[in-house]
Simulated assay, not measured.
Amino acid sequence: MPWPDPISLHGDHAFLEPLGLARHDEFVEAVQDGELWKLWYTFIPSPEQMKSEIDKRLEQQRKGTMLPFAIVASDTGKAVGMTTYMNIDAEARRVEIGSTWYRKQVQRTAINTECKLMLLTHAFENLNCIAVEFRTHFFNHQSRRAIERLGAKLDGVLRNHRRSSDGTLRDTCVYSIIASEWPTVRSHLRHQLATRGVKSP
């Protein structure tokens, strides 16, 4: 039996639903907002790569290594990005939240904070995870700041961890939140959503 099982998660600003091809055209529209695939320090599929990216994530789901989601804005009902549980370790009960992207229009809004809160809540309170991990490129400063705003702590940097699509070697920053930290992180994220309205810090 795969762990974790596909599930939909609902919030005020957005909801997460199991990834599928039905929203392909919405993903294409979303990724064109800001031409996100041109960012050199991360991989975000281009419009032409979108179907193969969805297929790849669904294949990893079948193998039990990933649980991918579509991020859907509550006000429009349209997909604004993707996120996943990945590098799933069912025996140790650890997951990584990653392979995440949002259309430019909704970046730094409550949608990101709320999606992370939903994913972390499900991981710690329903899946009984002992830790949730986040990884990003050393030079992806926007992502690093966002991860740190969640309350995750830097575990370390994996130097020359992998080769990027442009051939350069990537140093990967590894962050985590452990189960004992979750109650404080949960309060922090709830406070952000309650006091910031539509903008995260």
Results as ranks from 00 to 15, higher is better:
H13R: 14
A14G: 10
E125C: 00
G77P: 00
S46Q: 04
E133R: 10
A79H: 03
K63P: 01
H188R: 10
I88F: 03
I97Y: 02
R190H: 05
T172F: 08
S176Q: 06
A152T: 07
N87L: 12
E53P: 01
N128V: 12
V28F: 08
K116D: 11
K56G: 07
A79Q: 03
D25M: 13
R144M: 11
S176L: 05
S46C: 00
V106Q: 00
Q107W: 10
D75C: 07
G20F: 09
P201F: 08
L9Q: 10
S176D: 09
F69D: 02
G20W: 03
K104F: 14
D155F: 02
C115P: 05
L67C: 13
N160A: 14
R163M: 13
P201K: 05
H141T: 13
L9F: 05
I97L: 08
A179Y: 11
Y85R: 08
L150I: 13
F27V: 03
N112S: 07
T195E: 10
K56T: 06
P18N: 10
K38S: 07
M86R: 14
L58V: 11
H137Y: 05
C115T: 05
W3P: 05
P4Y: 13
P201S: 01
P4I: 04
C173Y: 14
K116Y: 01
W40L: 15
R57P: 07
K104C: 05
A123K: 13
A70R: 07
T172E: 03
Q105G: 12
F43T: 12
T168L: 13
F134E: 01
N87M: 15
S165H: 14
L19A: 02
L193I: 15
K104D: 09
D12Y: 14
G64C: 02
F43C: 10
G167A: 07
H191S: 09
E29D: 15
R162E: 14
R162G: 10
Y85D: 06
A92P: 06
D166S: 06
G167L: 13
L117S: 04
R163W: 06
M86H: 15
C173G: 02
K51S: 11
F124G: 01
R170G: 00
G11V: 07
A92V: 08
G98D: 06
A110H: 13
F138Y: 08
S8C: 07
E59Q: 07
R190K: 14
V28Y: 01
P47D: 06
E29N: 12
H13G: 08
A110F: 08
G197M: 11
S99N: 15
M66T: 13
I7R: 00
K38F: 00
R108H: 09
V106P: 00
T76A: 04
E125R: 08
G77V: 04
L117V: 01
Q105R: 15
T83H: 03
A146F: 09
L150K: 00
T168S: 12
T100D: 04
P47C: 00
G151F: 08
R94E: 02
R170D: 10
L117F: 08
R149W: 08
E114Y: 09
W37V: 04
A179R: 12
F124E: 02
E91P: 09
